[in-house]
Computed example of a mutant assay.
Amino acid sequence: MSLKSALGRARGLGSAKEGAGHFWGQRVSAIFLIPLSLWFVTAVIGLSRVDYAGVKAWFASPGNSALMLLTVLSVLYHAHLGLQTVIEDYVHCEAKKLVSLIAMKFAVAFLAVFMTVSILKVAVGV
């Protein structure tokens, strides 16, 4: 039995003051992905019958390569936020949670760098 009041026992167990920024990041990235996804689907449909030279010429346009880069990075950011939420909510072992969060962050960073270099390599033609 404790001599502390209910308020005293509950202090320090509240919000970490980070949830609102995370919430808004997810919502803004989701809204940002709507037009980018529509653009991506129309681009894939338009490029479905084009050979590598045609795709390379399409990527040579600064607008197309920039929109593709924005799409890839936005998807990765949105996925990062979603996976972080799932890991934090459903992995209960603190060690597994920490390892999972670190692995996910490294994977997202690796994919962001890899995809950016790939897009720029095709766009520039190296």
Rank of each mutant, 00 (worst) to 15 (best):
A6F: 09
A6C: 03
L7Y: 12
L7A: 14
R9Q: 10
R9D: 09
R11V: 01
G14A: 13
S15Y: 03
K17V: 06
A20R: 13
G21R: 03
F23C: 04
F23M: 10
G25I: 03
I34D: 04
P35I: 15
L36C: 07
L36Y: 06
F40P: 00
T42V: 14
V44I: 15
G46E: 08
L47G: 03
R49W: 09
R49E: 09
D51R: 04
G54P: 15
W58Q: 04
P62R: 07
G63I: 13
N64D: 11
S65D: 02
S65K: 11
L67D: 03
L70R: 06
V72H: 12
V72E: 15
S74H: 03
V75I: 15
L76W: 04
L76N: 01
Y77V: 00
H80S: 14
L81C: 10
L83R: 13
Q84I: 01
Q84G: 08
T85H: 13
T85V: 05
I87D: 01
E88D: 13
D89V: 04
D89K: 13
Y90L: 15
H92A: 15
C93W: 06
E94D: 11
S100I: 02
M104F: 01
K105Q: 15
V108R: 05
A109T: 13
A109C: 06
V113T: 08
F114A: 14
T116R: 09
T116I: 03
S118D: 05
I119N: 08
V122W: 01
V126C: 01
